[in-house]
Computed example of a mutant assay.
Amino acid sequence: MLTVWGRPNSINVQIVMWTAAELGLEVDRKDVGGPFGGLDTPEYLAMNPNGRIPTLQDGDLTIWESNACARYLAAKYGAGSLWPEDPADRAKADMWMDWKKTSLAGPMTTVFWGLVRTPEAERDMAAIGAAAQTSQALYAMLDKWLAGKDFVLGDSLTIGDIPAGAMAYRFMELVKDRPSMPNLEAWYGRLTSRQAYRDHVMLPIT
Rank of each mutant, 00 (worst) to 15 (best):
W145H: 15
T110W: 10
L2E: 01
K100W: 09
L2T: 02
M17F: 01
L157S: 10
S66K: 03
V32W: 03
P179Q: 13
S103G: 00
W187V: 09
A20P: 12
A186H: 06
D124V: 04
R90Y: 04
M172T: 10
L25F: 09
I128R: 13
V4I: 14
V32C: 07
W113Q: 15
G51P: 04
D143N: 14
D58P: 06
L153K: 02
P119I: 06
T3V: 15
W187I: 12
H200M: 07
L142R: 08
Y77F: 09
I53F: 01
G51K: 01
D177P: 09
V175R: 13
H200D: 09
A75H: 12
D199S: 10
M202C: 13
V4C: 05
P107Y: 08
A121W: 00
G24H: 04
G24C: 03
N183T: 06
N67S: 07
A93K: 00
R90E: 04
V32P: 12
T19F: 07
G129M: 11
L157N: 09
M108A: 03
G37H: 02
A91Y: 04
Y44N: 02
F36Q: 02
V111W: 12
Y44I: 04
A127W: 14
V111E: 14
W5H: 05
A88Y: 04
I162C: 10
D177R: 08
M95C: 09
A126K: 15
D94T: 07
G106D: 11
E43N: 02
D58Q: 05
W187D: 12
R198M: 11
M125Y: 06
L82G: 06
E173W: 00
M141F: 01
I63A: 02
L146Q: 11
K149L: 11
R7F: 03
Q195M: 08
H200C: 08
M97T: 03
W64Y: 12
R29H: 05
D28W: 00
G51E: 01
G165N: 12
L191A: 07
R90A: 08
P49T: 05
G129I: 11
R71K: 10
K149Y: 03
G51T: 03
A131F: 11
F171G: 12
L61D: 02
A137K: 12
E85L: 11
K76H: 07
G6Q: 00
T41K: 04
P8M: 00
L2H: 01
E173M: 13
A131I: 11
S10E: 08
W83V: 03
A21M: 09
V4P: 02
Y139I: 11
R90V: 04
I63V: 06
N183R: 05
L157I: 15
L23F: 09
K144F: 04
A21W: 00
Q133S: 14
G51V: 03
K149T: 08
L191N: 06
D161H: 07
A166F: 01
D177M: 09
I11S: 13
G165F: 07
Q136S: 11
L56F: 03
E43D: 08
M1T: 14
Y72Q: 06
S10T: 08
D86E: 13
A20N: 08
V13N: 09
M172R: 13
L2C: 06
I162D: 09
I205L: 15
G37K: 01
A127H: 13
P87A: 07
S193W: 00
G59Q: 02
V32R: 02
K144D: 14
T19E: 06
L146M: 13
L174W: 11
G154S: 06
G6K: 00
K176F: 02
